[in-house]
Amino acid sequence: MNFLTPATEGLRGLGRATLFLLTILAAIPGALLRPRLIIQQIYSVGNLSLIIIIISGSFIGMVLALQGYRTLVNFGAASSLGVLVALSIVRELGPVVTGLLFAGRAGTALAAEIGLMKATDQLAGMEMMAVDPIKRVIAPRFIAGLIAMPLLVSIFSMMAIGIAGGHAIGVELLGVDDGSYWSQINQSMHGGDIRDMLIKSSVFGLAISWIAVYQGYHAAPTSEGVSRATTSTVVVSSLAILALDFVLTAFMFR
């Protein structure tokens, strides 16, 4: 009987998280009536993540270009550098790396904030003031995460492929022809790739926001509980991103 406990606890957690998600979804229409609260949250999960997203996007694009060039130039295919960078970024690295960064930057902030609000009785206080904390606190944060993630992924990819990333290294530094950098990308990619990127990032955004608000809302109301909630947010969402990425990739590129 005893050895079953972790398994049953896990199942219980999953069930609780699912019910929690349903509660949030039910609260979303009400929350949408108050866009100001959502805007506030988009600022804290979106705008405040912008710097890290732009910088990492540029560096990842630059590294990909450097590494890719060394390999491609051996086959006389250096003109395909753009394709290499763009395909890797749009299909995989953009959504996945942005997701991991987003979980670390915005997910933990969400979980810690909600956990602290719980620990300091702010959520209970709201409830006693007849204000539903799911509608007032949780749903706007959840919606903001959902909106911010695809935008951040697009900005990340744009930085990595164009402006400062692969293009800067490949074209400006290594001397790949600017025209063929882009035309090669044009030839091997199409609108579907961008659509898939947006689908992936929306799914990741949902997973991260869900995990973060769940961990915060169900944190033990102590400082240890809050720190555990932030840690679990990073661990669980990173694993979820990687697992979901595999599943989505398997579906998209059959």
């Binding site: 979106g46 912008l50 935008l151 990819s157 492929i161 990308i185």
Partner: peptide
């Protein structure tokens, strides 16, 4: 600021669709 962020994001989607995909 939020408007700027959303604009930047949407601009990025457009740049990607038009520069990366052959439109």
């Amino acid at each position: 600021l939020v408007g700027f962020f959303v604009c930047l994001g949407i601009a990025a989607v457009f740049v990607l669709t038009f520069r990366v995909a052959s439109l």
